[in-house]
């Protein structure tokens, strides 16, 4: 009950910020529209809607890190979190309260992305439902990254690190915009060692109904999600102690 009240507050704080709505929903849809328009004029296999939609869906999730981290960093920067630390809320209530409310927002964002893709010509299949569900490991990864960054950085630093650096890293190293094989070398090796490209490849495999194709990508994404969540919990507890 206590944790639920806190979760609800976090949900409302995120959803009532117009910038969040723009970057969370509007921006991925604009990208879909833009790249589909380019594809219509200059056909590129990369930007075919069944290839593009899973990539944009994963890229859109990277903004959840920004939302989550900004909320936590602002709470830390004001006395609001200190005030809540003096209430009967437990450490678990805080951690779950920051992590869980963002996950349904991630799901809603994925539904909106795939919905927009359908309007742009993506064929409706049952695999689309699976695709939305398979965003969950990546969603947890990005939301936990938000908990981690929000526990370490100030809200201004969060803007630069999560708003610029992470979204760019996700864009460049995920294979959404260009084939990583074309760059090859160390770039591709680094990308393969990070979870972003695996999250996109997993989504693409599920969308085309190739469930065997989710391996080994799901292990990479789930492994990163578990590790980042553990580090984020540690970082949050540490800053809680310091407060």
């Amino acid at each position: 009950m206590k944790g639920l009240a806190f979760s609800k507050r976090n949900d409302l704080e995120v959803l009532r910020d117009p910038l969040n709505l723009f970057f969370g929903v509007g921006f991925p849809i604009i990208l879909l529209l833009l790249l589909t328009a380019i594809q219509a004029n200059i056909p590129v296999a990369m930007f075919e809607i069944e290839h593009l939609a899973p990539g944009i869906t994963v890229f859109g999730l990277s903004f959840m890190t920004l939302f989550s981290a900004t909320l936590i960093a602002k709470d830390r920067g004001s006395s609001f979190l200190q005030r809540l630390y003096t209430t009967p809320l437990t450490a678990g209530d805080f951690i779950l309260g920051y992590l869980l409310p963002i996950l349904p927002i991630c799901i809603a964002q994925s539904v909106i992305c795939y919905g927009a893709a359908v309007i742009l010509g993506l064929k409706v299949t049952v695999h689309m439902v699976s695709s939305v569900l398979f965003t969950l490991p990546a969603a947890l990864l990005f939301v936990s990254l938000g908990l981690l960054c929000g526990s370490i950085f100030t809200d201004k630093q969060v803007g630069g690190i999560c708003g610029a650096l992470l979204t760019n890293l996700t864009a460049w190293l995920s294979g959404v915009w260009f084939d990583l094989g074309l760059v090859g070398g160390a770039f591709q090796k680094i990308a393969d060692l990070l979870p972003f490209v695996h999250a996109v490849e997993m989504e693409r495999a599920v969308l085309r109904g190739d469930y065997a194709g989710v391996f080994p990508h799901i292990w990479w994404v789930s492994g990163y999600a578990a590790a980042v969540t553990a580090i984020a919990v540690f970082a949050f507890l540490r800053q809680m102690e310091r407060q």
């Binding site: 009240a5 409302l12 910020d17 809320l89």
Partner: peptide, 18 residues
């Protein structure tokens, strides 16, 4: 120390809830 995007009523209910 208030939640800025919550209304006055919601802030009060939040504290009662926690």
């Amino acid at each position: 120390a208030v939640a800025p995007n919550l209304t006055v009523r919601e802030n009060l209910e939040l504290m009662a809830g926690v």
